[in-house]
Design a protein around this nucleic acid. Structure first.
Length: 515
RNA sequence: GGGCCUGUAGCUCAAUUGGUUAGAGCAGAGCGCUCAUAACGCUUUGGUUGCGGGUUCAAGUCCUGCCGGGCCUACCA
């Protein structure tokens, strides 16, 4: 289908509760999904949890539970997070689901049929503590001259039977992909990184393990489970009922956008396209590696004790406020910093004082002075038309163009400029003075403003769905006129009605610890 | 250790890819307004672009060294 749009987040590893980074990615993906729906596209949005692997198995053992029970418990937190943040996914996929095992095995067999999987031995210096193999060159010498991992943990020479994927075979095709499709991997800095990585040569990839069994079984090799990334990446296909290629799959594959963190760019832009090439499937159109959120400029970690529960932020400041802050403050693709003070400051300045107050001052004026409704009879002046086209341009052209490039902060910047223009216009036109001198002119001014507020509210729907809808409700804008296509109409032309306007954004108090 | 990215006003970011006097918002200061969530508007203070060299008619932008931050280096967004 030409206007379908398939977007995914990375699936989260649920060996702990969701942190701010999970929330950030889910929100960004939801903003894109809502944005594309407003553009009239047939959107499918998938997120989920990546539940296999040694760490989950170990964590479960520590807690004396079955891995599946732990996965059930932890994935529930991720589902609750999405629901709590107004993240409207079409499918929440758990890799422990049977259909996912089927899909992973089907992909495996497709790669095998193409001659890209072979059984060999994996040997190397293995650190049990780090659960990782190290290259000889990475090892450091301990005090007694013994070999240690770069983290200083003991290593031993380990031999394990393993299936391998012929990654080396795809070096040329991958480099061609990056060269011919500059939009395949964004932002650009990440593409440079991957070109350098792939140009340096690719080793075949060990894609199965025998040391644990919490995973997808390798077909015909039941003592092996798939390397977790083979199984994890396949989730994007599972959600479309692969290996059935008739229904959802034919409609939505290839994916339009895999939204991921910058730390897993390699898996999505080297391994994943190579797997797909091997299986003879089309490649996703774009992978975008977003940046990380820093807590007051510092990375969050358990050892620093500065881990933030995103739901706590949402409860404290509001879901829309959190969503707006993350999209507005952080340049998408780069790292960003957040703090309670920054959230409060941004929300008060832009949402409460500028946009929310604009809507409220206009609507409550109409409710009080125009009996809640009216039609403007006089012709718009040049000033009215200028404001209207400025605001409409920001909402219908500038913001959507920026969002299309995932440049959310730029799009919202343009939107904010339009809000400022409206506030300047009210002060200049002073409808409260016109009320006594020229009521007809007053009505025209108010109608112009209502048209602008309609545009502004529709444009930000993807970011702050609840508050923007409340404003559109108060303006009595019908549900079917709340998308970008509807912005070509001029609501100031007809009857204006306002019902029960209420402030859309409360002013927030600065957190006490900041004082 | 290696690779890559990053450092611009107190804060968050721009700067058309080397081209006038480095621009916005927030925060601060002054004035105006009263419809509105003590909200809004106008004016304004504030920068040796991390530090040192170099290339160039011209450097925030390119090269180099140093300092700080980050990501990857075969299972944490």
């Amino acid at each position: 289908m030409a206007d379908s749009f398939y977007i995914t987040t990375a699936i989260s590893y649920p060996n702990g509760k969701p942190h701010i980074g999970h929330a950030y990615e889910a929100i960004a993906a939801d903003v894109i999904a809502r944005f594309q729906r407003l553009n009239g596209r047939e959107v499918r949005f998938q997120t989920g949890t990546d539940e296999h692997g040694l760490k989950m198995a170990q964590k479960a053992r520590e807690l004396g539970m079955e891995p599946r029970a732990l996965a059930d418990e932890m994935s529930a937190h991720f589902i609750a997070m999405c629901d709590g943040l107004n993240v409207r996914y079409d499918r929440f996929l758990r890799t422990s689901e049977p259909d996912h095992h089927r899909a992973s095995q089907a992909l495996w067999q497709a790669m095998k049929a193409n001659g890209d999987l072979y059984l060999d031995r994996y040997e190397g210096w293995y650190s049990v503590r780090d659960e990782a193999y190290y290259d000889e060159s990475e090892l450091v010498a301990g005090e007694g001259g013994e070999k240690l991992s770069p983290q200083g943990t003991p290593v031993e020479w380990t031999v394990e039977e393993s299936w391998f994927f012929r990654l080396s075979k795809y070096q040329g095709q991958l480099l061609t992909l990056y060269r011919d499709n500059p939009d395949f991997l964004l932002p650009e800095s990440r593409r440079n990184e991957m070109i350098a990585f792939v140009s340096g040569g690719l080793r075949d990839l060990s894609v199965s393990r025998t040391s644990f069994d919490w995973g997808v079984k390798v077909p015909g090799s039941e003592d092996h489970v798939m390397y977790v990334w083979v199984d994890a990446l396949t989730n994007y296909l599972t959600g479309l009922d692969y290996p059935d290629k008739t229904g959802l799959f034919s409609e939505y594959w290839p994916a339009d956008l895999h939204l991921i963190g910058k730390d897993i760019v390699r898996f999505h832009t080297v391994y994943w396209p190579a797997f797909l090439m091997s299986a003879g499937l089309p490649l996703p159109k774009q992978v975008f590696g977003h940046g990380f959120l820093l807590n007051r400029g510092q990375k969050e970690s358990k050892s620093l004790g500065n881990v933030t529960d995103p739901m706590e932020l949402a409860d404290r400041f509001g879901v829309d406020v959190l969503r707006y802050f993350l999209m507005r403050e952080v340049t998408f693709g780069q790292d960003g910093s957040y703090s309670p003070e920054a959230i409060v400051l941004k929300s008060n300045a832009e949402l409460a004082n500028s946009f929310g107050n604009l809507a409220q001052r206009v609507m409550s004026f109409i409710a009080k002075n125009c009996d809640g409704g009216f039609s403007a009879e006089s012709e718009p002046t040049e000033t009215d038309t200028a404001l209207r086209s400025r605001v409409n341009g920001a909402c219908r052209i500038e913001l959507p163009e920026a969002f299309e490039r995932l440049a959310f902060s730029n799009g919202l910047e343009a939107w904010m400029q339009a809000v400022f223009a409206c506030n300047a216009y009210i002060d200049e036109q002073a409808p409260w003075a016109l009320r006594k001198t020229d009521p007809e002119r007053m009505r025209r001014v108010l109608a112009t403003l209502c048209g602008c507020i309609r545009d502004l509210a529709v444009a930000v729907l993807p970011v702050i769905p609840t508050a923007a809808s409340a404003i559109l409700d108060a303006l009595c804008i019908p549900e079917d006129q709340r998308d970008y296509a509807a912005l070509t109409t001029d609501p100031a032309a007809g009857e204006i009605r306002v019902e029960n306007p209420a402030p859309a954004f409360p002013r927030l108090e600065l957190p006490e610890e900041a004082a």
